[in-house]
Write a protein that binds this DNA or RNA. Sequence first.
DNA 1: CTGACGATTCACT
DNA 2: GTGAATCGTCAGC
Length: 202
Amino acid sequence: MLKKLDYNFYNREDVVQIARELLGKILVTRMQEGFTSGRIVETEAYCGVTDRASHAYNGRRTARTEIMFNDAGRGYVYLCYGVHHLFNVVTNAKDVPHAILIRAVEPLIGLDIMQRRTGKQQNDFSLTSGPGNLSRALGIETRLSGIDLTGSTIYIAEDGYSISGNNIVATTRVGVNYAGDDALLPYRFYVRGNGYVSARKH
DNA sequence: CTGACGATTCACT
DNA sequence: GTGAATCGTCAGC
């Protein structure tokens, strides 16, 4: 049975620890097309004002990033390369702009809906591998940015499944070379051996 | 108002 | 491995 993660899960200080804990949890969307869900197998932590890789680095506060300065438990969705909708979870207290990028899930429910949304002919790993692909499969778009993750449209739940520490790989984040030394931080986590983990499996 | 560019993906060589 | 797609965002003028 599913138990939705509540405000107290998101409203904690250690964004890196939360990113690790999100592995094995279930991301659910309930849209017009129906119910879809997938188990989270890859995440990245973004540590706000002190993290050069974060959109909120150095307190950069704009219309787009404002949602990260909001209270915990919201979704932050933004458009990347004009094409891809990337889904993040906002954590920690109001005015502390921590966020966690969900980079890959393993599909659980609604495979037919996911295939329809993505137009994929086959059900291969690419269906929900990578932040752009999983958002498309689950129907997540930028217009949903700011959504309350304790609501019923998008939420994350646990079902008792857990991943042992030695099956969690910690490594550097993808596509953040511009971040100088912060690009070297081990803020990316994924499930060892899972086929849905996106590029650069080391 | 303008220009540069991105927490990516995919087709093609 | 390389390059194009594609457009909202944001700094700078």
